[in-house]
Each structure stands twice: as structure tokens, then as C-alpha cells.
Design a protein around this nucleic acid. Structure first.
Length: 219
DNA sequence: CGTTCGATGCACT
DNA sequence: GTGCATCGAACGT
């Protein structure tokens, strides 16, 4: 076996612009979650391209995690969680919001990371147009809302980026939807209990960039 | 500040 | 029929 270099970059090391390979996701979920803040989520659609720096994620790990959709065992809905790492798991929640997850671990090990907030980078006008449209129980974003509110919260960011149930099981290393290396996180990355759930709140599996105004939850 | 509540679609029991 | 990994408006304090 030959090696290009003794310092060949591992899948989780930064190299700006590089699309994160499937190997990035084929690791323990908490390690992947810790590495996601600072990465760039990119979505391309006929309407245009949008992107943003990930600043908040949550891990959902295994059938023993009561808050994970895999808790009841395999079902039709959670099938992507049992699939290969590096794909999207998108589902509809409260009948209104499409929520985006990145599947981790390995095939047969149901685990994923919920992407909860981004700092908008590219396609901000397109994001604002999408969020200014009301519909399906979703109110239009106020015209004077700051850019940092556009992708603040898991339902808001999918709406701003045009991510829908059509993206369920999408390849996260593909052209339509991918995560690429970005700058180092702008602040300290810290862990807290997951929010918005009623069970499993004792696990500190929410990971976010301290001080970012784009992080969801209280201010 | 805080809490409450309605909108809405789908998977699951 | 029930229950959400949400959001934001409309209150009350």
C-alpha cells in the first residue's frame, strides 16, 4: 500500500470548498456533529443556489434514544435512518415543516444529525423571497427581518433553501444538496440539551456556535 | 420579559 | 384518532 503523504487529510479535516465525502458521515454521530459547525450547506434548484454556514445541530442516535425516530424500530417513515451514511433524511413535522437530517454511522445503525440553523451566505435574496411567501400555516417573514433570521430554526432553514420532502434520501455528496468545508467556526462550539423535544432531554446532544445570532432557541 | 395556542399533513397504533 | 425533532402572533405580567 502506498501513500501520497504521511499527512494525507482525513475525511474530517478542513480543505475549503471540498464536498464532504460519505466517509465523513460514516463515523460516531457525536464526532460528526462536533465537526459540522462551520461547514457550508449548499442547495441548488431551478430557482437558484442557496448556501449557509451550519451553526447549530442535534444528534439523534439509535433505537435506545427515545427522541430518535428510530425508537419504535424500523418503519416506513424512518427507513432512511437505517440506510447508508451521507444521505439526507427529510420528514414533515407538525404537518408544516420539512426538517433536514444527515444520516450517520453505518447501514443498519439508525442515527442522524438534525441541521437546526445556518448563517446565510449565498442566495440571500432568494431565501428572503421564499420566506416572504406565506402558505400552509406558515406566516410570511417580516420584510425588515435581519438576514440572520432567514435560516434560524430547522423549519425556517429548509423553507429558505427550498428543501422539501423531495430531498428525502438525497445523496449529501451530490450536486443538488451537499455539505462542503467552510471556515473555522466563528465562536466556541458548545453542547447543550436538545430542544423542542419532550423525551431524551437529559442528553447533551445539541451542538452550536456560541454567540451566533443565527442559533435558534431563546436569545 | 413570559406563556398559550392555532395552523397543518402524515405516519403510526 | 393521536402526536409530533415548529413557528410566530397574541396575549399576560
Amino acid at each position: 500500500m502506498t501513500r501520497r503523504s504521511a499527512a494525507a487529510p482525513a475525511s474530517h479535516q478542513a480543505s475549503p470548498g471540498r464536498v464532504l465525502p460519505a466517509a465523513f458521515y460514516a463515523r460516531p454521530t457525536l464526532e460528526v456533529a462536533a465537526d459540522l459547525p462551520g461547514k457550508l450547506l449548499v442547495h441548488r434548484s431551478p430557482a437558484g443556489e442557496t448556501s449557509g454556514i451550519i451553526v447549530e445541530v442535534e444528534a439523534y442516535i439509535g433505537e435506545d434514544d427515545p427522541a430518535c425516530h428510530a425508537a419504535p424500530g424500523p418503519t416506513r417513515r424512518n427507513r432512511p435512518l437505517y440506510g447508508p451514511p451521507g444521505r439526507a433524511y427529510v420528514y414533515l413535522n407538525y404537518g408544516i415543516h420539512a426538517l433536514l437530517n444527515a444520516v450517520t454511522e453505518e447501514e443498519g445503525s439508525p442515527a442522524a444529525i438534525l441541521i437546526r440553523a445556518l448563517e446565510p451566505i449565498g442566495g440571500v435574496p432568494l431565501m428572503r423571497r421564499r420566506r416572504r411567501r406565506a402558505g400552509k400555516g406558515v406566516r410570511a417573514l417580516a420584510p425588515d427581518a435581519p438576514d440572520l433570521d432567514l435560516c434560524r430554526g430547522p423549519g425556517n432553514l429548509t423553507r429558505a433553501m427550498g428543501i422539501s420532502l423531495d430531498d428525502n434520501e438525497a445523496d449529501l455528496t451530490g450536486r443538488r444538496l451537499c455539505i462542503v468545508d467552510g471556515p473555522a467556526p466563528s465562536g466556541e462550539v458548545i453542547w447543550s440539551p436538545r430542544i423542542g423535544i419532550r423525551v431524551g432531554t437529559e442528553r447533551l446532544w445539541r451542538c452550536y456556535v456560541a454567540g451566533s445570532r443565527a442559533v435558534s432557541g431563546g436569545r
